[in-house]
Design a protein around this nucleic acid. Sequence first.
DNA 1: GGTCCTTCAAGGTT
DNA 2: CAACCTTGAAGGAC
Length: 678
Amino acid sequence: MQEGAGHSAAPPSSSADRLRVLDVKPLRSLKPIFPPSNQAPPLVCASPHGPFPANYASFYPFYIPPLPPEPEPPEHPEMPPTWAAAAPTPIRSFTTPGSSDATEMENGDKEPLRAGRKRASPVRASGSSQKRGTKTSFVRTAGTFEIPMSSFDSETGNREMTNYVLTTFDGLRRRLSQWEDAKEAPGGIIRRADLKASNLLMTQGLRTNSKKRVGPVPGVEIGDIFFFRMEMCLVGLHTQSMSGIDYMMVRGEIEEEPIALSVVSSGYYDDDAEDKDILIYSGQGGAMSKPGKQASDQKLEKGNLALERSMHRANEVRVIRGIPDAVNPNSKVYVYDGMYIIQQSWMEKVKTGANTFKYKLVRIPGQPDAFGVWKMIQRWKEDLNSRSGLIIPDLTSGSENVAVSLVNEVDDEKGPSHFTYLSTLKYSRPFSVLHSSYECSCSNACKPGNLNCSCIRKNGGDFPYTANGVLVNRRPLVYECSPSCPCSPNCKNRVSQGGPKLRLEVFKTTNRGWGLRCCDPIRAGTFICEYAGEVIDKDRMKWKADEREIDEYIFDTSRVYAQFKWNYEAGLLDDENSSASSEEYGIPSPLYISAKEFGNVSRFMNHSCYPNVFWQPVTYGTSNESYLHIAFYAKKHIPPMTELTCDYGVVPEDSIGSAYRKRKCICGSLNCHGYFGL
DNA sequence: GGTCCTTCAAGGTT
DNA sequence: CAACCTTGAAGGAC
């Protein structure tokens, strides 16, 4: 199966005085802004006039006229529909009366934050002319969002909204982290980009499932992973920023009583979380809640009382398992493990001598494995032989730093057809000399914010990666440090070099040949692998087309790729003259890579019209020339053992490769294009 | 609707 | 690396 490529150029983003905004303490000014895209007519939306529940500000970022054909519910949980699928025609502007032309700043904005705001900002809030808390209108524009705008309901969500909220959150979070890394945040240091980002979204009402509920949360699926507590708050899975027990008041037999909605188990208390179907959860308060203070007995109140009541009512409780992140030892991964029932409760004297409540939660049978998958992978790690369907422990034969296993749990095929494993690109002859090579003069690792570093300057002054190696933004071209740069090999600007660092696995799918997946949880923006193979030139491409040679392993940057938005595009965050950070790729000339004879794990990645991986051109040099590479990054958080897929693109009719037939797509997503290019 | 308080964070430092 | 320290914001309680 194949892959494809994109094209087109864009100016590098600039980075001048954009940070002044961070001076403003409440940061209310940093509201998300979605500049109109040149791809689609801007969508102007306005909030209806309520009434709204008391606890949230009205906010309708998007409005779409009612759609005649209601899409079928997705069969594949990972494949939400997009608005594009549901609304093939351009979306027209829509504005509700009364909110059309607000020009005032929002209350609380003391001054214009930046000169370009008036011009650049398509977003205006007209809060000041109305009584707070009654009506607040927002006008928004949105460009080419993959994220659906068929509905925005902050009370009740769906898969589209969760994806939208999480993508926005993480894009903003990465951007704030980038500034923090570069020490570019004046006055206000952003120590906690996660909190800052979520605070901004919360303030804007950009959240979903804000209404508390017992049971499943629309748009959140069992097995979904999160890297911050705030992510779970924003999508309504667990709305406590720190507390482990989320609950709500309901009418009881006599009076109102609390019932538990969800719990997060992350090892702070002495929980027993070894069994994949059973969780012994400790109550809150008392013993450990006040470090340094004398431990005290827990009381039957708040969350503890809620768990107790929920046990008697036998209502289901969502369980989120917090697990140390092997990739980032400092942080945790939260796995949504589905519904549990509280079977038992008791009081126990713990080591500190304090009485602690304990609750035995048992997983409701019949749910897909989530935490169970993690436990399974852990077992494989301890004993590779316990892995069923294992054919080869390392199909790269040591070519990569991390072994890539080959498994087939589906049938008895023993492996894909022959190819030679090659861990990087092979330029058979001089090709794609982008420009003269560049190199920095940094003595140690290149430091974000150091504009003396010419590699950083190449990236418009931005360090492309956060401190933990996550790509901040998609951009025309990522300039990494070259082997010839004097900076140390562990310089953070070499993320895509040196091959995969995650435990990838080539496996047999049920209906589309071999595929690629990963045993590790993957954070959005993480580098996964590059597309290795032989670089071929235009003549060779033409020859292949003329000869009708079927090469399913071509990567072609000149194909047309589905547009999507990944960066946090806040006009406020960037210099007014930069069109924010462009997600259009800029490559001087098309690059064709064939992985038919020589290739790495990337050649096994299948196509999806709703992929979880995207490609990004990256360049770095060898001796005195710079070469282009195609690197794959995670588009969103990807749970372990989820198939990795990317967009193969479509071959334009007039291109060299158009002699190839189109291939029927079986990705199963609602917005499936029906075919992809080959 | 404030204001105080609690809270199974997240990072950093030692 | 575990223990400790610092900063931090949501939501509940009153």
